[in-house]
């Protein structure tokens, strides 16, 4: 009896965590999926409407804006962060003096809450008190920068703040990748007379493909989840110009009491994330078995 218990104990102690995650993540997602198929408004209802909420959702102009914004924001955020991150990592890889001090500085923004980032950037970008005002005070009268108040450009200010927050962190990912490259390969290339630039382009960067993949997955899921930064920076405005799916979901349920439609937008976001992480997790477990 005691031996039995000894054998089962390890499984038993994992169970609470396992069940908690199972219930609170997947159980609740199933409930959200159920809600998305019902006629729920302010309170959940059990009136089944099938996919009607989804058809309604995709006819909404504000959802359309949210998706377009996500596309703009997501693509720019991922591309710029990766490029900057790679550049900074290569820069730090050049035997910089006091690298141990610079690295944490690059990483600082990431340690801050998106709320703080958003608030700080709101001041910097505000034409009245921020960069524009400073430039005017310094005598550059014609300087004009009011993107944050401009419907067509406000989404790019969200990109700027997000890039500021995340670039250092992508840098850290790439730096770890660079440091992991086998020195022998580089030495061999140098003996063959390859220049520094060519070594990076032809040898090191191709070797870092897994790091690019990880960076992509991390950045993509952050982009789809983006919520607090927009809330703090623009509040989804001006108008609804910087609405993203997560802020859409929130405003549609809690200010318009359309729980069913809100739930269907949440499910669409989940599908987006799943389509990114399932292949990734799958390939990771595959690699693990081969190792």
């Amino acid at each position: 009896m005691k031996d039995r218990l000894q054998n089962w104990l390890p499984r038993l102690v994992v169970a609470p965590s396992f069940l908690l995650v199972l219930l609170f993540v997947y159980g609740f997602i199933l409930y959200t999926a159920y809600l998305s198929m019902t006629n729920s408004r302010m309170l959940p209802s059990s009136e089944w409407v099938g996919f009607a909420n989804y058809t309604k959702l995709f006819k909404l102009r504000s959802w359309d804006t949210a998706l377009k914004n996500l596309a703009i924001f997501g693509i720019l955020y991922i591309v710029i962060c990766s490029a900057l991150g790679l550049f900074l990592a290569i820069l730090l890889d050049q035997k910089i003096r006091a690298e141990g001090v610079i690295r944490p500085i690059y990483l600082y923004p990431m340690a801050l809450s998106f709320i703080v980032t958003g608030t700080a950037w709101k001041w910097f970008l505000d034409p009245g008190i921020g960069i524009e005002n400073t430039m005017h005070a310094w005598g550059w009268e014609s300087f004009h920068f009011d993107w944050i108040k401009n419907r067509s450009f406000a989404i790019y200010t969200v990109v700027m703040a997000a890039v500021w927050q995340s670039s250092g962190f992508v840098m850290a990912m790439f730096l770890a990748g660079l440091r992991g490259v086998d020195n022998e390969i580089i030495k061999a290339a140098q003996i063959d007379g390859a220049s520094g630039f060519r070594i990076y382009r032809r040898i090191i960067i191709p070797l870092m493909r897994p790091v690019f993949l990880s960076a992509f997955v991390v950045l993509a899921h952050l982009a789809i989840k983006a919520y607090d930064l927009v809330i703090a920076l623009t509040g989804g405005g001006p108008g609804r110009a910087t609405e993203l799916p997560a802020t859409f979901m929130y405003s549609y349920t809690f200010t318009r009491n359309q729980m069913g439609i809100g739930a269907s937008s949440a499910i669409i976001m989940l599908i987006m994330i799943f389509s990114i992480i399932i292949p990734y997790v799958y390939s990771e477990t595959k690699n693990g078995e081969n190792r």
């Binding site: 959200t32 989840k225 997560a246 979901m249 809100g262 994330i273």
Partner: peptide, 24 residues
Amino acid sequence: KDILLWMLSTKMLPAVGVLYPIYL
């Protein structure tokens, strides 16, 4: 290993997916 990875991957899911049940 699979369980661990599976658990970890849930951290990537958007919070909006579980907002309603938790709210209610």
